[in-house]
Every structure is written in structure tokens, then in C-alpha cells.
Design a binder for these strands. Structure first.
Lengths: 191, 191
DNA sequence: TTTTGCCTAACGAACGTTAGTTTGTAGTCT
DNA sequence: AGACTACAAACTAACGTTCGTTAGGCAAAA
């Protein structure tokens, strides 16, 4: 990927984040770069190509993170804390892409769509595995595992809806707060 | 609203849910009803009119629920449990509309957009007020109140991403599980 | 006889994309 | 140094399609 291509991609993502993929035209993207619409096709095969690159680039970041964590021999609580920290870190340090990744992946078509869902499920399984370990260890409540996984992911992903890079909480702080909140819901009561 | 209009609205919502507002054409909607695209304009002023009706109809349901709860003299925990139960109930019993409401409100333009955001903030304030009461009562942790509110709403709203009307959990059961999870994150540790 | 619900036909605008060409720049050879 | 080559990155012009929407009319129900 050339420098220029990366530059254009970034500009495109800023607009896609604002307007959403389906509501953004190729002409919108071109205008923000002050080039002609046709010029974009020197860099990308299609409009969907931009979406594809964005979604799969993010997916691979998440994939890499969860795989690393899954190979570490920490206990479930530590693993979950790490996973949440990494997740928040990825989301907040690529906010534009993250929003597109979370909202617009549905616009992927054909094989891309299938592959994306596959990757998403695989990540979800990584999180689920950690929670399952916590239950096996006797540390986490024996709750509905699917339910727990989705609740964890939902609260983490929703961050992009309100996160402000200039706000008082940085990524690490958010991750810690969220971890405390989530773990108090998972960890067995010590009464 | 005539019976026919309601019928068309419902059909439209089923498609909007699947494809998203921006990616759905008026022709798509018409085709599913086996009528001509132009015929839709006997019932609706515009495509956005359909979105507007859907979003504000849902908003008013949420609005009504939170206002009722806010006038009741229960403690914060009870109020929050009620709010979550009502919220889940509304989401799951109007799943198509709920998904459009949550995902596609950004496509509202002009005054509708402003008004919608206003309504959303007002609802958010209702939830925040309950949590604040819990803190004042000394029952909830003195956490970042904005953070807590958003985390509660995120986990509740994410339900629409995985809820299956034919699944083993009904709305009430989901609400209770979620309430337990959320409250264990909010309620002070009794150690 | 008015109203409701749909029709046909068509409008201009915007859409994603293509073909073919020009421009600027960096490196290479004489 | 100056000429030649190669390539990246943009351009102009236009393509066929789809978009949301309107005007005006027709048939059946109230």
C-alpha cells in the first residue's frame, strides 16, 4: 500500500464514519480530497474495496490481539482484563475505522460478507473461551455463556458511540473502569 | 393512521431492518408489497417520512416508559430493574422498528435529526437520574455517572443484535439476567 | 359523489464505474 | 547536463443504471 493510498483511505474513512457507507457517494470522498471521482479508481478497485480494506484491517487487529492473549497462561480474570484493554486500545486509536467496522460491515457483499462474519465469530469465540475458563476455574458465575460474552462485547463496543479523544478518560482508564464493571458482574460473590 | 398505512409501514420496516435505510430503495419497499413505487406516495410524503415515523414512534415508547418509572417512589435498584425490563420489552416486541431506531436514526435530516437527538438525550437523562439516586441513597458505587449510564444502555441496546424471538430466553428473562449483571456492577460491595 | 388506493409514465438528479489521456516526477543513459 | 524512459496519479468525458419523486388518471368502495 503506497503512502498516497493510505492517505486517501484515511480521508475516505473520516467521511464514511460521519455519513455511513451506504449514504456516502464516491463523489463525496473525492470532493474531500479535492480530486475527481474517477481518480479514486487509480487506487481502489471499487467503492466496496474501501469498505473491505477498512473492515478486514480492523478485524485482523482484533484477531491478532485475542490470539496472543489466548496463548498466555494467565488466569481468566487477567486474560479478560487484557482482552478488554486491547480491545479498547484498538477501538480508540483507530476511531474512524472502528466505527465503520462496527456499523457498516453489513454492506459487505458476497464472499467478503461471509468471511467477515466468520472472523467476527472467531473473535467472539476467543472471548467466550476466556469466560468459559473463568467458569471452569470456579471464579466466574455459571451464567449463560453466550449471554455473558455478548454483554461483555456490547459494553466494550459501545465505547465508540461516546468516546472523545479529548475527553478526560484515556483508553487505559476506560478499559480499567469497564473491566471492573464487567468483572463484578462475572466474579462470584464472596459473601 | 389507516390500517393499510400501518400494514405498509410494517412491510417497509422488515426490509429497512435487513438492508439498512440508506441501502434500501423505495423500489425495494414497493416490490415487497407488490405495488408500484409511486403508490407508496399515497401513504407517505417521502422515504424519510417512513424513517421518521419509525424512529419517533419508538422514541415515544421509551419516553413514556421512563417517565412513568421516574414518577414512582421506589428505590433506585427497583427503578433500574423496572427501566431495564421495560426497555427490553419494547425492543423485543418491536424488533424491526427497534433495529431501525438504533441503527438508522443518523439518516434523519434537519429538524428531525435535532429533535431525535434531543429525545434520546432526554431518555438517557432519565436513566442517569435513577443511577444518581442510587448513588445518593448510598447504594450504588460513586462511579463516573456518564460512564455508568452509557454502559447500562449499551448492554441493553445490544440485545437487538442477537435476540431471537424463538430462542430459549424471553424478554423478561433477558431483562432479569441483564439487571443482575448490571446491578452487581453498580451496587456497593458488601464485604 | 367523494375518497381511497393504486396505476402508468416520466422527470431530473445522482449513482458507481470505464476508457483513454495528460501531467509531473524520478531514475537512467548518452 | 540534457534527453529518454517509466510510472504514478491525476484528468476529461461519458456510460448505463438507479435513485426519489411528481403529475395525472382510473377503478372500486363508501
Amino acid at each position: 500500500m503506497t503512502e498516497r493510498k493510505r492517505q486517501i483511505l484515511q480521508s475516505a474513512q473520516a467521511i464514511l464514519k460521519k455519513k455511513g457507507y451506504a449514504a456516502t457517494s464516491v463523489r463525496d470522498i473525492a470532493k474531500s480530497l479535492e480530486i475527481e471521482p474517477a481518480s479514486l479508481y487509480s487506487h481502489f478497485k471499487s467503492k466496496e474495496d474501501i469498505l473491505k480494506l477498512t473492515c478486514f484491517d480492523m478485524a485482523s487487529k482484533f484477531d491478532k490481539a485475542i490470539q496472543e492473549i489466548n496463548t498466555l497462561y494467565f488466569d481468566a480474570e487477567q486474560q479478560l482484563r487484557m482482552a478488554i484493554r486491547e480491545h479498547v486500545q484498538i477501538l480508540t486509536s483507530h476511531l474512524d475505522s472502528a466505527i465503520i467496522f462496527l456499523r457498516d460491515w453489513r454492506n459487505l457483499t458476497g464472499e467478503s460478507h461471509l468471511k467477515f462474519v466468520e472472523k467476527r465469530n472467531s473473535y467472539e469465540n476467543g472471548i467466550r473461551k476466556i469466560i468459559q475458563t473463568g467458569i471452569d476455574e470456579g471464579r466466574f458465575n455459571e451464567s449463560d455463556i453466550k449471554f455473558a460474552t455478548l454483554t461483555v462485547l456490547s459494553s466494550v463496543n459501545w465505547i465508540v458511540e461516546w468516546y472523545n479523544p479529548n475527553g478526560k478518560l484515556n483508553a487505559t482508564q476506560i478499559a480499567e473502569k469497564l473491566s471492573n464493571f464487567i468483572l463484578s458482574g462475572l466474579i462470584k460473590n464472596k459473601l
